[in-house]
Nucleic acid binder design. Structure first.
Lengths: 336, 336
DNA sequence: GGTACTTTTGGAAGCGCTTCCATTCTTGGA
DNA sequence: TCCAAGAATGGAAGCGCTTCCAAAAGTACC
């Protein structure tokens, strides 16, 4: 079994340096290149990644950091889809992907990521307004791309959607179908997505001259918070609920049904994300589609651009969202 | 900034070898150890993982391979939960976790995993009866733990549940509540989980003397296959459907509802997995709970045992499952 | 054929660490 | 007090690769 570049060099009758050039695309004569490549193919030689990393200072591996509360992570398919989008893109660009989930404090996670020294760049989910992990990565010299962003990240590269606009459009839709007591179950407070969706909701309500102060309940992006939130809001006689995501809406739906109320007859319901199950609820859920896999893929592409020209300007990508109207707000209409 | 072990050695007035011993727990006098550790803490020195890997032959990184059809992966929370379970356990044991999803052919994935040379062991999901990727990993000298297993993996280490038994128990439950035309929408054919659940289903039906040949429809673990499968089965006048997983059941429920049939009145419905959403369907779904996160965690532990004593005997873990009875089979009863 | 390039190649240093081996320092028992 | 055995330490080799630099080979033009 040919294990080292030296053996390969001996076998092909050239120097180790030349073999290295063949493998890494250096300048080598066609004749030599063909000969060496033939031997490589024949022997199934694979360069040792650790040695390569040590010698060159880059590993071809990118890090993915999803430091998220276990109660939020992987409860629905959101983070999985994000991961898959990244992986789809990275398969051609990178040697691999190191994944860190949030099992400890953010400081410890940061420590692990930075100390490993074997990633060339990182993609990190930046959901919280206040996040030492994100701050630490941005402050390091590791190329970093955020999924999500904070308004004060002036020099950061990120991929995100316009939560304010999207929330405004859902709320406006609810207004347009004639609802006036439109409630909102928020996402986890302190996250940008939650806060921005609140802003969008308030904006649309204010524009229509509708009050909303007693119609907001804090949730946490999970179904149980939707169920308990809806209980309170129904007592306050709302006629529509815009939930911060689809899982929350699923929880709300449970409560609404338990009260014997009709959707959308008594209460219209809307979510956010458009995960697979949204279309399969009864009734199918009106929601905002944000291409989660696309966001992951875009983050990966952005990271590689960043790594290609270091200290270039930050790259910021805002992906489009789409309001998907289904029977939970416009009942009786055939599914689109 | 102290970057190398040599600087650290100079600073603490000992040799590089001694510093290395301090860091790796070699035999060093208490006095020296304290002094060096103090300097380490003070300077925030972190050993370079690539150099360490190259010199020692181990990286502390483990690989996780989930080569699964994109239509299956991350559609529901199953794989995410698995990942989270592994991560929970690995955080203390490993320097990191490399993740490979199935973006290319299995051969290419195998190639990437083996060639990287920077994982000390791998956990791989082994769902298919026929899987060159799993075969390749088992044949390599990399310690490997399977999540799931094939009956012919005599020397492999794995973590799995008893699908046959679990499926038998669900089916028996349906029989016990008086159903006689009990249908089954299978999982993706060729996967062990699907085939074994079929065996369990048939076994229970045979024991009760019930026919089942015209009551099986192939599905693929996804909701759409549940919806189309149920359409066929309802035409064949079934009075219960056991679906190969919860997502499939969700799809089936959609069809049942569209026909104006009652669950469980007209058709009892059961799933498998007990993901979060199962309890939130209307009606809540009877299903088999398999602790997916536990499986992930157990796989990680098993891998480390395997790495600790190489060429030991294979380790095989069968985790328990639990039949969770909800209103989709026993309507009217208060939710547990 | 000779000069002045350009392209291709090999030698050698070095990336930061672990670990073997030999040397020095301790310790305890005779 | 002295010696042997054991513990602690330092020196040095080497893990497998990239890359700088200089030397060799090829090419174009006069």
């Amino acid at each position: 079994m040919v294990r080292t570049i030296d053996e390969l060099a001996r076998l092909s009758g050239v120097s180790r340096a030349t073999v290295s050039r063949v493998i890494n695309g250096g300048s080598v004569s066609d004749k030599t290149r063909r000969r060496v490549e033939h031997i490589v193919a024949e022997t199934g030689y694979r360069p040792n990644l650790a040695a390569r990393t040590l010698a060159s200072g880059r590993s071809g591996v990118v890090g993915v950091v999803m430091h998220v509360d276990p109660h939020l992570l992987f409860r629905d398919a959101y983070f999985g889809q994000l991961l898959q989008g990244m992986s789809d893109e990275l398969v051609d660009l990178a040697a691999g992907m190191m994944l860190w989930l949030g099992n400890r404090t953010k400081e410890q996670t940061l420590d692990k990521v930075l100390s490993s020294g074997l990633v060339d760049g990182v993609i990190v989910t930046a959901h919280y307004r206040d996040d030492p992990l994100v701050d630490g990565l941005l402050a390091s010299d590791l190329p970093t791309v955020l999924v999500g962003h904070r308004r004060h990240d002036r020099t950061a590269s990120y991929v995100d959607v316009d939560h304010v606009h999207a929330a405004d459009s859902v709320t406006s839709h609810l207004i347009q179908i004639g609802r006036t007591r439109i409630a909102h179950i928020t996402g986890m407070r302190g996250t940008v997505a939650a806060e921005d969706r609140i802003v969008g909701y308030r904006r649309a309500m204010a524009r229509a001259g509708l009050p909303c102060d007693d119609l907001m309940i804090d949730g946490d992006f999970n179904a149980p918070s939707g169920a308990t939130g809806a209980a309170v809001l129904l007592d306050r006689h709302c006629d529509a609920i815009f939930c911060a995501n689809d899982s929350t809406a699923m929880g709300a739906l449970e409560t609404i049904r338990a009260r014997g109320l009709a959707v959308p007859g008594d209460v219209a319901l809307a979510g956010f994300d458009d995960l697979d199950f949204a279309a399969r609820l009864d009734p199918p859920l009106t929601t905002v589609r944000q291409g989660v896999r696309d966001q992951g893929a875009e983050a990966a592409r952005t990271l590689f651009q960043l790594m290609a020209d270091r200290d270039g300007t930050p790259r910021r990508v805002i992906l489009p969202t789409e309001l998907v109207i289904r029977q939970s707000t416009v009942g009786g209409v055939l599914r689109p």
